[in-house]
């Protein structure tokens, strides 16, 4: 793979959402398609309701930790976390994010306020060349499980062409790497994402 196809993807979400599972699914799908893959995760204390971040590097990058301004693509599983991760995006990069907030405790308790979605979107649009928000929780629930909402996000990124991974590859990845009982809902989530993007484009 030539160096101009090298991609750095930053994943962010909230502990318990399945951010690392989604990273791993995309990473294994990439390897199955003979792409050079390195992924980086942080486990442990952060997983107790904190922010969970991971990276996926395609095409020969080796650094398992990204700095600000390095990601070509941000996949955000929660809108506030997408905004928090925005400094990691290079100018002109792409952002795909869930539009379903999971308010942090300080917001739930009324101590601080959650930024409204328009602010989040406009902040992102100042940096990103492409910014797509999807109702992942709604589509995931419709597909059969909240967690399959993560696949909605992966599918949207694959469908956009920013990744060297197509929807068919992702579909194959789901069938190969996810436990059988989760396959149907995740394949359905993939279809729902495709349909949602089509209707949104019209």
């Amino acid at each position: 793979m030539s160096q101009d196809k090298r991609l750095r993807i930053f994943f962010t979400g909230v502990g318990g959402q399945g951010t690392l599972t989604a990273t791993n699914l995309l990473a294994r799908t990439a390897l199955m398609n003979n792409l050079e893959v390195v992924a980086g995760e942080v486990h442990g204390m952060a997983q107790r309701g904190g922010v969970v971040e991971s990276v996926l590097l395609l095409g020969g990058w080796r650094s398992p930790k990204l700095d600000h301004g390095e990601a070509d693509l941000i996949l955000g599983f929660e809108p506030l976390e997408t905004l928090r991760a925005l400094p990691y995006l290079r100018h002109g990069g792409s952002v795909f994010s869930s539009s379903d907030p999971l308010p942090p405790l300080s917001v739930s308790l009324g101590v601080s306020s959650y930024p409204d979605l328009e602010t989040i979107q406009s902040d992102i649009q100042k940096v990103a060349s492409q910014c797509t928000f999807l109702p992942c929780r709604e589509l995931g629930t419709k597909a059969g499980s909240v967690q399959s909402g993560n696949t909605v996000l992966l599918a949207a990124a694959c469908a956009s062409g920013v990744l060297p991974i197509t929807l068919e590859m992702l579909s194959q990845g789901i069938k190969t790497f996810l436990p059988e009982k989760h396959q149907a809902s995740n394949l359905e989530a993939l279809k729902l994402a495709e349909a949602y993007l089509k209707s949104a484009a019209q």
Partner: peptide, 20 residues
């Protein structure tokens, strides 16, 4: 040759780890 990065916002509500 490093590109400038977007400026982090410091006014976002934090999400520290917490007891479940």
């Amino acid at each position: 040759p490093l590109n400038p990065a977007p400026t982090p916002r410091t006014d976002l509500p934090g999400r520290p780890p917490n007891l479940c």
